[in-house]
Design a protein around this nucleic acid. Sequence first.
DNA 1: TTTCATTAGTGTATATTGTACACAACATAT
DNA 2: ATATGTTGTGTACAATATACACTAATGAAA
Lengths: 224, 224
Amino acid sequence: MKVQDLRFAVLATDVVLFSLHDDRLWVRLITTQNTHFQGMQALPGGLIGPTETADEAAKRHIEAKTSIASAKVHFEQLYTFSTIDRDPRGRVVAVAYLGFVPWERLSEVERGSTSDARWSPLKDARGLAYDHDEIVKVALARLRSRVTYTTLLQKLLPKEFTLTELEHAYEAVLGADLDKRNFRKKILKLDILKEVPNKKSGGAFRPAQLYRFATDKVIEIEVI
Amino acid sequence: MKVQDLRFAVLATDVVLFSLHDDRLWVRLITTQNTHFQGMQALPGGLIGPTETADEAAKRHIEAKTSIASAKVHFEQLYTFSTIDRDPRGRVVAVAYLGFVPWERLSEVERGSTSDARWSPLKDARGLAYDHDEIVKVALARLRSRVTYTTLLQKLLPKEFTLTELEHAYEAVLGADLDKRNFRKKILKLDILKEVPNKKSGGAFRPAQLYRFATDKVIEIEVI
DNA sequence: TTTCATTAGTGTATATTGTACACAACATAT
DNA sequence: ATATGTTGTGTACAATATACACTAATGAAA
């Protein structure tokens, strides 16, 4: 299909799929087939079909392009990019999405690389095709902002986690160090976590109490 | 033009244009020409052309449909609505925008009504055509949220204003009463306002000091 | 079985910020 | 000069934020 043929814009979606692992943020990148950006890395995405919503298209393309089950991913609409010449093939307007998936929920295959798709540390995700550098920049800004006043971070963490893991997650996303004792006082006082009976023993040291979020819903609450 | 003819979606924009007046929020509404919603009220908007961005289309339609100079309006992208059957004429995806204009900047004509457009108190803006009730709902939620952690409210106020006017603006948007002395202490400590030399005398009582925002830019800062 | 290494878990003192609350100052109109 | 109505201000108390260091628990190794 040639996008120039269309009367108005072609609608597409691009997804900035985040995961958290090894105290760093990672993004899922693909190798673009577009001849204008031969072999370059890009965000997964594709056209929005005539009978699907933007959300549905985002989910569909994540499955098709990155081999990651969309049911494991939490999606949020990010921004719609409509610069005229953002795609050299013609007018393409992209409804960009944020996606969040806990590394622990990924299978071995989903964690790995194929010739087409791979996880990349966010810091190395530069020089992307199209305007995808810009989209990633907006995505990170949104993530950082939302993490401070919502419980969005739960979508990057496994069901059960220790307070140290939670603290490290905030530190990785915000790029800042937090005080251990003050962090614990604050996060526990918010009453958004529940202690679970289990403990996590990771080696030759005191095992840590496990917690989970009281609700699956991302709620608005001043966190950090 | 028949939108059904298009291969994929037709792209449109809808604008929730807010103003603040008489201690209430107002929205600019038009009378829709769509036969499916004969004579109903709707948000101003229209198609995004092949050679304009969504932002440009939003500005263009505000001028064309509501007779308000778009240069006076501060625009922010709100959300992209892509439900399949949101428009009975066919598949139309709408990039919705927030617009903010200070009532004081409006001319007599812009404040008034025509057969096609009018200002409506936000509370009365219900029963709109299409999914516009939903869009207005999302718009108000976004406005309320952003007002607490940004200086967005400056875009609904005249250049110079008294602290009482600023307080009333917050009260109108948030739908809550604020303590006069605590509000003043807090807002002045943020260092986002500048005293101007003038005072505003409104009658047989002590005139009020005028202030303006230190910068035109909307910045992120915990306000209320 | 003792010691070592490593992470988990906790408290307190001080500074800062939030909250509740009432009256004098100022300009104008009469 | 006095009545009117809005502006502008301070203080005491409560709550929250910040800075900071040691003990507890486990498993591994000696």
